[in-house]
């Protein structure tokens, strides 16, 4: 498995967040641009933690929607501080505009794109993606008429159309049946390979599914005697030879790693 870790494209430095108690403490991690010969290889990162640990707050900080008490998040190769709108967000409940059809929801995503396109180009792009995401027959429907899995696809596609290279997904496997989960995994892998700089950050408590498509996993947990969650472990799945394999879940070493992670959390 040949790969190279290039420049840092996402940097989280000394992030602390406190409300009535410490929620997040000294969060530090970097995401590198990963390159592989003869292919476009984006990045898939997992932030794994138990429910109620502060994952959603970290999610909002990464998206630029919430300002931490100290520290910050920098993105892109110039490492500028993240601003809301520079990072796509797919929340757990796949929020969409219920008063707009699926097509109109997607058009809003496209409207946010900085790339100039003619109407014909926009239509072609929408049709191309709708086909890829199996949404073509649902374009005239309203969000309330779609299933959870379909809404999730619309939500992801809406964010992709904005042209953002970073997409955060909050609990993307929650509430989905096993067959749909596998389809979501496939879809996320496809998105990560659409562009060299596409970076998916999955925030989840589902260790197995998150790690199955990730190149790096960060464990968010509490340390004994200290208040607030922090990154307690970094797992480099590339180094372990446990990534970019569609059959990874059947791999014994991967299964052992998942079991260990579950035990440690």
């Amino acid at each position: 498995m040949t790969y190279k870790k290039e420049e840092i494209i996402l940097q989280v430095e000394n992030v602390n967040l406190k409300y009535d108690r410490q929620i997040l403490r000294d969060i530090n991690f970097n995401v590198h641009n990963i390159t592989r010969p003869d292919m476009q290889q984006g990045q898939v990162i997992s932030l794994i933690g138990r429910s109620g640990i502060g994952k959603t707050q970290l999610f909002k900080i990464l998206a630029g929607l919430l300002q931490p008490d100290t520290g910050g998040v920098k993105i892109d190769s110039d490492l500028h501080p993240v601003k809301a709108g520079e990072v796509g967000v797919v929340p757990q409940n796949y929020i969409l505009f219920n008063h707009r059809s699926i097509l109109d929801n997607l058009k809003l995503g496209l409207r946010g794109s900085s790339e100039k396109r003619s109407d014909k180009e926009k239509e072609d792009l929408l049709n191309e993606y709708a086909e890829k995401f199996a949404l073509k027959e649902h374009l005239k429907k309203y969000p309330m008429q779609l299933s959870g899995g379909q809404r999730q696809r619309v939500s992801i596609l809406q964010q992709i159309l904005t042209g953002n290279r970073f997409i955060l997904l909050d609990e993307p496997f929650s509430g989905l049946d096993p067959v749909i989960k596998d389809k979501v995994l496939e879809l996320l892998v496809t998105i990560s390979t659409l562009n060299e700089l596409n970076t998916l950050v999955i925030i989840s408590h589902d260790i197995e599914n998150s790690m199955a498509i990730s190149d790096t996993a960060f464990i968010l947990a509490n340390q004994e005697g200290k208040e607030g969650a922090t990154i307690t472990e970094t797992i480099d799945l590339m180094q372990l030879g446990l990534c970019w394999d569609p059959e990874i879940k059947k791999n014994k070493a991967f299964q052992d790693l998942v079991a260990q992670m579950k035990f440690r959390m």
Partner: peptide
């Protein structure tokens, strides 16, 4: 829902566009 405003931000809308989309049209 606060998330509707956040969705607007992630879609790169400014505050006036957010008002139009979420509060007025929505």
């Amino acid at each position: 829902n606060e998330q509707e405003y956040e969705l607007c931000k992630t879609l790169k809308m400014n505050n006036w566009q957010t008002l139009l989309e979420v509060v007025i049209i929505g």
